[in-house]
């Protein structure tokens, strides 16, 4: 077996971190609206597009200057707000009124798919038609050249790849504190578990759900903003493949726990490139000629979805760990 390089490992950690945030958001909206949001991948791409536009209009002028580094704060923040609002609009304008009219799960799912199609096509139109200051045209541009380089312990990598994991951990800890230490956060957990009881206690459940959707969208925006430096090019249609990995991570996490979503998302995002490149390098070494399989990388996500649903549909959080450990002990002959 040929192990991946440290550079590649750092890339995989960054990708895993961004997928963890995406899975967290998807799971949060799934727990409130009880419907998987098929537009979540495109919400991330919207965050990427916002970053692209910021660089095209403003930041290209500062390339190489110290001021340029503020892009890693400004872009995720702007993306957080705009994408958060977009998700909120999706909930308020589409899902909530439809659910109120008694539309079933299938109808709600197709409505999120409809929103996805609207969003992808609007974004495509905008990127084609919007004036561009630096690139000439916005569609399909790569931002790899705009990611500041950095070298740590002799490993050459980029700034976004180093920052992304820290941002993800910081956001996860903040969210944890919010959900366990603040009254509104506890109300959020309460409203998710039992909305009608929450209402009888005087909690405004609608407001709680609105905040959930805004947060979920905002996290997708942050994630997409960092992803824009990693992906080959910023194109709206990419969301339709990203969504498969988001579902894989969320299903692995059990679709019912935000902690499960974080772990599931990171595992899928980290393992997907790592497994693929390891397999590719190993096959190349074994066969003695160049084998390229990275174009099939996403199949790993599909495999995760299928294996988890066949073996443990409840995901990681649904597993009975005591039972498994107990069985392992018995097999081992201990106790």
């Amino acid at each position: 077996m040929v192990l991946p390089s440290p550079e590649f490992t750092i890339y995989s950690i960054a990708y895993g971190s961004s997928l963890a945030l995406l899975c967290l958001g998807l799971t949060l909206t799934y727990m409130t609206a009880k419907v998987p949001n098929f537009a979540h991948g495109t919400l991330a791409i919207l965050g990427s597009a916002i970053t692209l536009i910021l660089i095209d209009r403003v930041y290209y002028q500062f390339k190489g200057e110290p001021l340029y580094y503020s892009i890693y704060i400004v872009a995720p923040l702007v993306a957080f707000l705009i994408v958060g609002l977009t998700a909120l609009i999706q909930y308020l304008l589409i899902l909530k009124p439809l659910a109120k009219r008694g539309v079933g799960v299938i109808g709600l799912m197709i409505a999120t798919l409809a929103f996805d199609v609207i969003l992808v096509n609007m974004l495509t139109m905008a990127l084609y038609l919007a004036p561009s200051a630096y690139f000439g045209k916005l569609i399909g541009q790569s931002l790899k050249g705009f990611d500041a380089g950095i070298s740590i312990l002799g490993v050459v990598t980029t700034f976004s790849r180093i920052v992304m994991p820290f941002v993800a951990v910081a956001l996860a800890i903040t969210l944890h504190l919010f959900l366990t230490r603040t009254k509104f956060g506890i109300a959020m957990r309460a409203s998710i578990e039992n909305p009608s009881l929450a209402r009888t206690l005087g909690i405004d459940v609608d407001k709680v759900y609105m905040v959930s959707w805004f947060l979920a969208g905002g996290l997708a925006g942050v994630s997409g903003s960092f992803l824009s430096f990693i992906i080959e090019s910023v194109k709206p249609a990419a969301g339709s493949l990203v969504i498969v990995s988001i579902f894989a991570g969320s299903i692995l996490g059990g679709l019912g726990s935000i902690y499960g979503a974080l772990i599931g998302g990171f595992l899928v995002g980290f393992m997907e490139p790592m497994t693929t490149i390891t397999l590719q390098n190993t096959l190349t070494a074994l066969l003695g000629k160049a084998v390229i399989i990275t174009q099939y990388q996403r199949l790993f996500s599909l495999l995760v979805v299928i294996v988890v649903l066949l073996l443990a549909p409840q995901g990681l959080t649904g597993l009975n760990y005591r039972g498994i450990i107990g069985r392992a002990r018995r097999v081992g002959g201990v106790g």
């Binding site: 506890i186 957990r189 309460a190 578990e193 009608s196 009881l197 009888t200």
Partner: peptide
């Protein structure tokens, strides 16, 4: 006070 599910089990 509802008949069932009248406390938040996970809290």
């Amino acid at each position: 006070l509802p008949q069932t599910d009248n406390v938040f089990a996970e809290l």
